[in-house]
Write a protein that binds this DNA or RNA. Sequence first.
DNA 1: GCCAACGTTGGC
DNA 2: GCCAACGTTGGC
Length: 158
Amino acid sequence: MQYWLFKSEPDEYSIDSLKAEKNSTGRWDGIRNYQARNLLRDEIKVGDGVLFYHSSCKNVGVAGSAIVVSEPYPDPLQFDSLSKYYDAQSSPDNPRWFSIDIQYNAHAKKFLTLTTIKATKELSDMTLVKQGRLSIQPVKKHEWEIILSACGILSEND
DNA sequence: GCCAACGTTGGC
DNA sequence: GCCAACGTTGGC
């Protein structure tokens, strides 16, 4: 089992949005960055753990956790000419962008802010701290455990 | 709204 | 394949 951190702007899609979906399961789409795409397409597996991170808002940090419940599949938005994620250079035969489905697991009982993450020595190696911009990032096991514990989330999905 | 740190594009 | 110009992300 591997661990990941997914960033989303809560105004667009939040941990509450995910929980409110049918079966609390939603599609993670709109990824338009090759580094993130490669992780999504090639590395992420069903059953992997996901930290749901809220970015570009008043309160930035880890808002909850989720679990990967599908294999990667072509992001349907890339073929939708009305979507802002439309990509005319992509085709169903040779899709450029991918999505996966994740299922809600828990809200952080205690919201873990970026400030706290940055102040935690054991988390100083995280991509989040070193390279702010990547929207899908790998998380090491010990980082996952520290963060879940700081959030007050029990590892119910182990 | 600012700006640093990336990423992408396109001329050569 | 280099690199300048431009675009985007995301914290503050």
